[in-house]
Design a protein around this nucleic acid. Structure first.
Lengths: 181, 181
DNA sequence: TCTAATATACCGACCAGTCAGTATACCTGA
DNA sequence: TCAGGTATACTGACTGGTCGGTATATTAGA
């Protein structure tokens, strides 16, 4: 068939899609295979067990997000606040992609909470770095938590904010980053 | 047997416990029944289908939280900020109980995202009321979202904050409520 | 032809939901 | 006050179906 369309990526996309549409409990191997346009046997070839699929989903989420944050940070002028600003920007831009990716969290949490260990580690590191972003830790944490709140509410499709309100909240957060002791 | 120990409540507690411990995908009727100390038939007697159990979990979550917020608001001096303060206090105090209750969110999301409709409605109402709390909407939204962020991270067991940091964030949020245009 | 990639068929475990029956509390009228 | 009846709360065995995983073919490209 296609030379190297990264079947693995297609499978991971399919799994995320299912989690968002029908819930993590219905993300079965057969359903993922069908959504990805291959057979169950084909899926098993790439991910020998469901756990491997879930691990790959979480791993890709962290990798992609870290990548995006790092890239965004690079594009900003140097300064202690750069990383926090990049965190905001990476979360707010391309919300749809972020939500898709984050479906992995729900899948992992539903199947085995331990699969979230790498995510725990990610947050541990991130909050540790928050201390050195030029803001008081509590202030930086509030900003970061607000971003996470919006992100998780959107993941669960619970956010009632319309486009304008969302943009307003984003602006307010950037204002809080800039105008703080 | 026991006079009226509200078996339904025991069952709902058991279901929440399981979601937190082993993930929503393993919250099976048999497992819930065992955790609740009754037979599967007994469980089915109270909740004729799994969907009914999940609906009851979500319903209890909303009811209990709204109740706690309302009670807290009552105990505060009158003023436009009363509700927002109550939202903070209801979320921050008794974090363990809040986390337990919120497990319903994960269970509902995993089994059928539509079960979260009442929660969507709750957030719609809540954010609508945020406009009348004396703060600029964006500021109030940021505060509320930060609380939600911490709450959801704790639900997913992802929060890296220790007791002291948590208290600091709480203080910072109250400061933001008080000292804003 | 050898190997990577995918398909088909199947198995055992598990799961949601049914069902027949049990035990006990609660009535109701003679 | 007590017999007969009914509602409530539960049990445990069973069933149809689903799911994760295995085993084995088949195909396509180097």
């Amino acid at each position: 068939m296609s030379p190297r369309p990264r079947t693995r990526e297609v499978i991971l996309d399919a799994a995320e899609e299912l989690v968002l549409n029908v819930g993590a409990a219905h993300m079965t191997l057969e359903a993922v295979a069908e959504q990805a346009g291959i057979s169950k046997g084909g899926l098993i070839y790439h991910f020998p067990a469901k756990e491997a699929l879930l691990e790959a989903m979480v791993s890709r989420l962290l990798q992609r997000f870290a990548e995006r944050q790092a890239e965004t940070a690079m594009s900003l002028p140097e300064g202690p606040k750069r990383e926090l600003l990049a965190y905001l920007m990476a979360s707010f831009t391309d919300a749809e992609a972020t939500k898709r990716l984050s479906a992995s969290l729900l899948a992992a949490s539903a199947n085995d909470p331990k699969l979230l260990d790498p995510v725990r580690e990610y947050f541990r590191d991130w909050f540790a770095r928050l201390g050195t972003c030029g803001l008081k830790f509590e202030r930086a944490a509030v900003i970061s938590l607000a971003v996470d709140g919006l992100w998780l509410l959107e993941l669960l499709q619970l956010s009632p904010l319309d486009q304008g309100q969302r943009a307003g909240v984003s602006q307010e957060l950037f204002r809080l980053v800039d105008g703080s002791a």
